[in-house]
Design a protein around this nucleic acid. Sequence first.
DNA 1: GTAATTCCAGACTGATCGATCCAAAAAACA
DNA 2: TGTTTTTTGGATCGATCAGTCTGGAATTAC
Lengths: 217, 217
Amino acid sequence: MAALRHQKPFILFWTDQSNKSRSLVMARHKEFDRETALHAAIGVFSEHGYEGTSTEELLTAMKISRQSMYDTFGDKRGLYLEALKRYNVESIDKIIADLRREGRPIEALEGALVAFASRPAAEARRGCLGVSAICEFGRTDAEVAALTDSAGHALHAAIESLLGEARRTGDLATDIDIADAIPFLGAALSGMKVSARNGAPPATLRGIARMAIRSLR
Amino acid sequence: MAALRHQKPFILFWTDQSNKSRSLVMARHKEFDRETALHAAIGVFSEHGYEGTSTEELLTAMKISRQSMYDTFGDKRGLYLEALKRYNVESIDKIIADLRREGRPIEALEGALVAFASRPAAEARRGCLGVSAICEFGRTDAEVAALTDSAGHALHAAIESLLGEARRTGDLATDIDIADAIPFLGAALSGMKVSARNGAPPATLRGIARMAIRSLR
DNA sequence: GTAATTCCAGACTGATCGATCCAAAAAACA
DNA sequence: TGTTTTTTGGATCGATCAGTCTGGAATTAC
């Protein structure tokens, strides 16, 4: 079923920590798709949070055995951290890609937010694992906080670049402090995610996106 | 320690469901303060979510015995629902009270958001139990969703009233659809709560609040 | 004093938790 | 074929979970 994939060196070294022999002459390949399994885990964690998810649920969704999960991801927490990291990276990459679509910076920002608002309802309802992690752990878990910060910095840098360009082209209102606008846009995105999780339809989310962009003009 | 309180009729009837006799002639009064215990539970649930909170943690924070908790709130879920309801009511009441402070509607909105942003960092860091409930349960739990909706409707009604007034006085930009502005302000509030939970200082939150209000002018 | 009720501390239960271990089948490659 | 590794399924572990129960002290009204 799952495509056959060769192990990356990183994985081999990791596995070698628990296995003594390093003779890689003959062995069975990893059969399940690590990416697919990880995305299944992202789905379950997004729906029920870390504490609300049991390993049984994870194994069922990931369609792998107990042993495979522990061999591949270490433990439940290791799986969660990797799922959160992957989710954050993909989520931010998608938004940054949308930000580079349009020519004019403000239009690009609006386009990216509107595109986010227009996601299929089923996907939006599942919620954002990044926001879920913030709400569940706050700043108390150092590793989770580091992942959150890493994603936040990447997003803020992309927005800052665009706002700087908007300032140069005169598209950004002169009385706006970019240092205020950056966290505002981040908060707007978080607010949209919470609203989506609470059942707001795409049309409502698009309205939120347009109102947020309005404050830049 | 805790002030002595007389039981409300509601509590008596509830207790009577489990106890056969209804002779209320002689009995010991409830000793601990129900409100205080509930607020302690709100604090713990806010910090760790529903699934991440154990009954032991709750009892320690509430400073009551196991039996008292089960007698008074039924079970963990009952306690959670009551804590969430209380939190939502008090949270919305506080904001609505702030909304009635200023004379001009837009200034009132800004004042309420800035006041919310200026809460003590310790309180803001603890997070919002309402947002936590949305993230943890989404729309899957009917009773939780009902409590969330109830609070949302009250907030939206208050904002709608103020925006309508702003429209009449000409303080609201004419090209703004109030139906868009209401969920936007709600999302802005949610976004501020997530940002606060993630460690954003009051100054940053105030910047977000001002940017949000900017879009109304 | 007596009955009724609340309080606390702690024992206890059955279920579920995350995690480990084992055995056997399957697959890869020499 | 033989060796090595992955895979699965299930057994099993100790810990913790929510919730119940008991016993005894405290507090109230009669």
